[in-house]
Every structure is written in C-alpha cells, then in structure tokens.
Amino acid sequence: MKSGLAQLGYTALDWLAELGRSVLFLLRIIAALPMLGRKPRLLVEQVYSVGVLSLVIVVVSGLFVGMVLALSGYRALVQFGASNALGTSVALVVIRELGPVVTGLLFAGRAGSAVAAEIGLMKATDQLSGMEMMAVDPLRRVVAPRFVAGIIALPLLTAIFSVMAIGAGGGYFVGVTLLGVDASAYWHGIQSSVGIGDIIDMFIKAGTFGAIVTWVAVFEGYYAAPTSEGVSRATTNTVVIASLAILGANLILTAMLFSGG
C-alpha cells in the first residue's frame, strides 16, 4: 500500500516536472519568435506543410460530419415539426463545438504527429546538434516556425471544415437536397442564429488548439529519445496528449466564451 502511494507520488512529481519543462520550453520558443520576422519563408513553408497538406482530411471529414449532423438533426426536429430549424442546429453545433474540436483532433493526428516525428528524427540523426555546432539555434530555425504555423493553420482549417460541414456538400446536401428541407429556411436559420461573436469565438478556440497541438508536438519531438522507439513514443504521446488537452481546453473555453450566450 505504502509503496503504491509512493509510486503515485513519484508519478505525480514526474508529471509536474515534465509540465514545468514544457512551460520553460514554451517560453524559450516565445523568446525566439522575433527572429522569425527575418526569415518569413520558414513560416510560409511550415504553414504549407501543416496546413495545406492537412486539407484533404479536413475537407472530407467536414463533409461527412455535416451530413451526419443533418441526418440525425432532421430525425429529431421533424418530430416537433421544426425541420426548418435544421440549418440553425447544424451551424451552431459545427461553429461552436464540432468545428474547432474535430479539426483540432484531426490536426493533432495528421500534422502534430508529423511535426513530432520530423523533429525527433532530426534529433536522432544529429541534425539538431549539427545546427547547434553551426551556431544556428534549432529553436529559432526549426521549432518556432512550426509552432506559429499551427496557430495560423488551424483556424483556417477550422473555417474550411465548418463551410464544408454546413454548406452545399455536407449538411445542406443531406437536409435540403435529400430530405427536402426548404433551402431558404436552411440558410435563413443559419443567418439569424450565427452571430459574428460565434465566428470570433470559433477562431479563438481554433487558435488555442493550434498552439496546444504544435506546442506538444515540438516539445515531444525535441526531447524524444534519439532512437526509433523514442521517435515512435514521441508521435504517440503527441496525439494522445494533444487530443486530451484539446478536449479539456474546449470545456474551459466553452464555459468562458459561451457562458453569457
């Protein structure tokens, strides 16, 4: 019993130490950000790498999520004769919750794992040490551009996901084209229920999730053991930790942002 408690204590201490190390790492990244202004090309390359290359999975997922929401929403609403409110229900669910969260989870799986693996492999093959010995700070050259790229890319991907889910190929296709909901009622419902505040809140959530995913990914990659097993663990940890952090942060942000509405 005592050893079990002691083990629990050691685990908690290790976890706290890791958290502290990751916060210090984040501060070092933030300190390296001003240097990014001198080489904007690095940032553009990373936005392409984590953003543009994630488009396919985000677009396809957006379409399917929108279609499923319209299907299940219609079944519930039609019982109350409120099928014309389908646009409202799909839009609010997507913009307030599912858009940022699902895109964040997809981003963690697609881009977060790739960033962690790339940096971990750079470490394992001495590329980071090589940069240090060439008097180039890997935090500035490798880590900072990837961190900022996530904060830029995820809100844009979330907007694309939401448009796909709500629009012509997703919710609209199932609700209006297949189930016969009135098209003007669908669009009017969205127009009257979704305010600019909802859109801003969606971008705040998505930007926060983007920072969380890339922070976890660059930290796990940078401190990965320089072995194949270490890189594998870093990618797995990135997906697991970032996904859980997104869900936890979403709860907090929802409570903060939408408590008045």
Partner: peptide, 20 residues
C-alpha cells in the same frame, strides 16, 4: 558568444548530420 566561437569551429558528425 558561444555561437560566435562555434563559427570558428567546423564539426563533421559520424552520421554526416546533413539536413535531409
């Protein structure tokens, strides 16, 4: 200052450490 010193050193790693 350390980076200034390192500019005066070259290092050839066993793996080459080329940027892939």
């Amino acid at each position: 200052r350390l980076f200034d010193i390192r500019k005066r050193m070259g290092m050839l790693f066993q793996s080459g450490a080329l940027l892939s």
